[in-house]
Nucleic acid binder design. Structure first.
Lengths: 183, 183
DNA sequence: GTCTATATTCCGATAGAC
DNA sequence: GTCTATCGGAATATAGAC
């Protein structure tokens, strides 16, 4: 893997672990065994790295969407939820929640890319739910977009909150979301 | 108001706006028209201020609970939800989501106090929902504690997320939560 | 209780050699 | 592309005068 992509990968992990304002270029250069200046060679400003991290997440989102695009809505939703299960397994929070929490400290460039990421996630989940509703895989009363907002906020905040509540709470939330969609 | 309580109030607002790692003692001293060292007189370390901010929020939670303790469950829930409506009006995020996002960067003292705050919020909402279910004010299928987790995560993350989605999304989530509880 | 002054450390960032 | 060296600034924190 190239140094640049390793920096992005490490930065991504650090955003999920400590938040964008909670890590420094030194955290990355130390773990990578290179010098601070070398990180600046790839990303002149920290905000450039922030944008790259968000864009990388967007690419992986597109991969996930493509991977299950011909499958049934319940399989697609399972794929979406599995992203959060993976993050929970690392005891981290999701990148959107981390960046969104610090929104007012991010520059316009980062905020714009973050908005794109959020929009695409919301559109994907909305379309999964709409199709599931149409063919009877799912049952719910609200607009698909509203249901998508509810499910996304459940998952996003459960990563943040269940590190402070009882063990198993994340799994309970996860299972309840799936159960309540069943016809 | 005393200087000490003004510092806590300003710190509280800054956590909601910028996150605990996104503001400094200078932000407070400048706004208060005093010097940095004066803030340190009241709170030797930043973590001491963090604990005070959390404890102050816990007190206000107790006030809110006491204020509506003899009212009907739907009124109590409305009071709970109104906390988030107020924060949304300031375009901020809630203190629990802000601190919980940065959990791994907080010291043990702050983490312990934060856990207490989260536990008490969860217990309150659980008891509101359980009582509402018992007397028929609310209708839902899960355990009251699970439903409380779902509602809290909806509200917490909607503050973070709806600054990046369409106007009105927060209100939609808010209204849907209330609607879906109706028998 | 608030101030001046200062110590220390860290951070983001850049210039220029190799 | 990575390094050394360094800058300017900001952050947390403390000592001691008033």
């Amino acid at each position: 893997m190239s140094t640049k992509s390793e920096i992005i990968r490490l930065g991504d992990a650090l955003v999920k672990e400590k938040g964008f304002n909670g890590f420094s270029f030194s955290d990355i250069s130390k773990k990578l065994g290179i010098k601070n200046a070398s990180v600046h060679y790839y990303f002149p400003a920290k905000s450039n790295l922030g944008v790259a991290i968000i864009d990388d997440e967007l690419e992986r989102l597109h991969d996930a969407i493509a991977e299950v695009k011909d499958k049934q809505p319940d399989e697609q939703l399972k794929k979406f939820l599995s992203i959060y299960v993976g993050i929970k397994g690392e005891n981290n929070i999701c990148i959107v929640g981390s960046f969104a929490s610090d929104l007012s400290t991010l520059d316009d460039d980062m905020a714009a890319h973050l908005k794109t990421l959020v929009t695409e996630i919301l559109n994907w989940v909305t379309s999964i739910l709409a199709e599931g509703l149409r063919i009877g895989t799912f049952k719910f009363e609200t607009e698909p977009r509203t249901k998508a907002l509810l499910i996304i906020t459940n998952m996003l905040a459960s990563l943040q909150l269940t590190r402070l509540t009882e063990p198993g709470d994340f799994e309970t939330i996860h299972n309840t979301i799936i159960k309540e969609l069943k016809p």
